Amino acid sequence: MTDTLTLEQQIDLQIRTSGPMSVATYMGLCLTHPSKGYYRAGEPIGTAGDFITAPEISQMFGELIGFWLVNLWQQMGESKTFTLLELGPGRGTLMADMLRVACRAPGFRDALRLRLFETSPPLMGEQQARLEVYEPQWLQNFETFEDGPILVVANEFFDALPIRQFIRKEDGWHERQIGLVEGKRAFGLSPTPIPASAMPEAVAHAEPDTMFEVSFGGAEVMRQLAKVVAKQGGSILAIDYGYATTQTGDTLQGVRRHAYADVLDAPGETDLSAHVDFGALGVVARQAGLATQPLASQGQFLNRLGLGERAAALSRANPGSAADIRSAQDRLVGADQMGNLFKVFCAHSPGLMPPGFMP
Rank of each mutant, 00 (worst) to 15 (best):
T53A: 00
Y39C: 02
R91M: 11
A102M: 03
Q14F: 13
T81E: 15
P122S: 09
R104G: 09
G66M: 12
Y39K: 03
D97G: 01
A102R: 02
S120A: 01
W73R: 12
K36H: 10
F82K: 12
P122D: 06
P121H: 03
K80M: 10
M21F: 04
G107I: 00
F82N: 13
F108E: 07
T32L: 05
M27P: 06
C103D: 02
K80F: 03
V101E: 14
I52E: 07
P106S: 12
P44R: 02
L69P: 00
L123I: 05
Q74R: 12
P122H: 06
Q14D: 14
G125L: 03
F82G: 11
I45L: 15
P20N: 01
T17W: 00
R113C: 08
D50H: 07
L29R: 14
M95T: 15
R91G: 08
C30L: 13
A41S: 13
R115G: 03
L99C: 00
H33W: 04
G62P: 08
L84Y: 13
P122W: 06
T93V: 01
G107P: 03
L114W: 04
E43F: 00
P34C: 14
S58V: 03
Y38I: 00
P122R: 10
W68H: 02
P20Q: 06
G42K: 12
I45K: 01
G107S: 09
M124D: 00
G90V: 06
E118V: 04
G88M: 01
T53L: 03
T119W: 02
T47S: 05
M27Y: 05
G125Q: 03
K36Q: 15
P55A: 14
R91D: 02
P89L: 01
